[in-house]
Design a protein around this nucleic acid. Structure first.
Length: 226
DNA sequence: ACCCAGGGCGTTG
DNA sequence: CAACGCCATGGG
């Protein structure tokens, strides 16, 4: 309850923002598109996920009712570039079933439901884990929910903030306990972590060219062989 | 040829 | 509980 604000964490974020600029997440034309994008972006590069988003838009299907009517076997080939496209086509249908049933396919209704209730319910859907659900809450519904991920774990542990094997929940609490409840801050903080995480070594925590600690000036795009 | 990307689930030991 | 296998594209 005593949410004291920790300056070092803010300073870390500021260093990243100063070095790389605001990331302007989530790139989408609508909140619904953000949700679909969050599903398609699971464990794949954003370029692949974004191509799939565009394919759905070009097919005129970026709409809850039309997408649901199209069915998973129609959308699967459209989203090939998002990698596990058969699974993801199924996940989209699973979400749409919930969305149409509980919100009539209207984002405003979803946003007006209690955040924790939505979080609980989405987490029961097959294919929707904490990161995807929290991304939907933060980036589509603009709820003050901090999104953690594999990069957050990697970077946070290299910073000495927590152990590498920390759970998702505890990692999320680490940030929410130390940051003001600010949607814009949560938004760009996670985006900065992803930007940084994308260009540091996955395997070598001690890579001298990976400037995770302190400034955030990037030198290592794991271009060298360890 | 390799590595890895804005995860999550099901199955083993 | 951890440690895997599975899904199955595309860019560097």
């Amino acid at each position: 309850m005593s949410e004291r604000i920790e300056a070092p964490l803010i300073a870390f974020y500021s260093a990243l923002k100063d070095a790389h600029g605001l990331q302007h997440w989530w790139p989408a034309e609508s909140a619904f598109e953000t949700i679909i994008g969050a599903i398609l972006a699971q464990n794949v590069s954003w370029t692949g996920a974004y191509k799939a988003v565009c394919a759905l838009k070009e097919a005129g299907l970026m709409d809850p009712h039309l997408l649901f009517q199209a069915g998973e076997y129609t959308i699967a080939p459209l989203i090939r570039s998002s990698r596990y496209y058969n699974q993801k086509a199924g996940k989209i249908m699973v979400f749409l079933s919930w969305f149409l049933e509980n919100c009539d396919g209207e984002i405003s209704k979803m946003a007006s439901l209690p955040c924790l209730k939505v979080r609980r319910e989405l987490l029961t859907l097959s294919g929707f884990g904490p990161e995807t659900v929290d991304s939907i809450l933060l980036y589509a519904l603009e709820k003050p929910v901090f999104v953690a991920d594999a990069y957050t774990r990697r970077i946070g542990s290299r910073q000495g903030w927590f152990e590498e094997n920390i759970t998702y929940t505890r990692m999320q609490e680490f940030f929410m306990d130390r940051l003001p409840s600010d949607v814009s801050l949560y938004n760009d903080f996670h985006a900065q972590i992803v930007y940084l995480g994308n260009r540091i070594c996955k395997k070598n925590p001690n890579c001298s060219a990976c400037p995770v600690r302190d400034t955030g000036i990037i030198q290592c795009r794991y271009a060298h062989n360890h």
